[in-house]
Amino acid sequence: MPRRSHTSRQAIKLLAVLSERSGKWSHGYDLCVGTGLASGTLYPLLARLNDHGFLEAKWEDSPIDGSPRRHLYRLNAKGRALAEERLDEFGHPDPAWSVAR
């Protein structure tokens, strides 16, 4: 039986944060802060989500303040469906979310 992907606690946290930002682009560091994950954990998860076709990634068009361009991420429709499925199955990592829902 093949192993199911994106079921680790860290992956669920990331899916939860990305799905909360429904459709909005996020920077990598913002996601580190939002999920509480270290960059060495977050980026491999983003890369895997992207490999499996759940994530959209692009370079920032033109930063307003003239600072260097950043990479942006958001879930696509398939990714949002995955997030919903995983959060229903494993629960939201933040218990307050379930109450507020």
Partner: peptide
Amino acid sequence: AMAAEFRHVPSGQKNQFALGAAEFSITA
């Protein structure tokens, strides 16, 4: 992407962020 993001990371977090890049790269 991590190297670009690194420039936006607060100075107190930069070492940890860069260490994460090395960890990601070595694991990959």
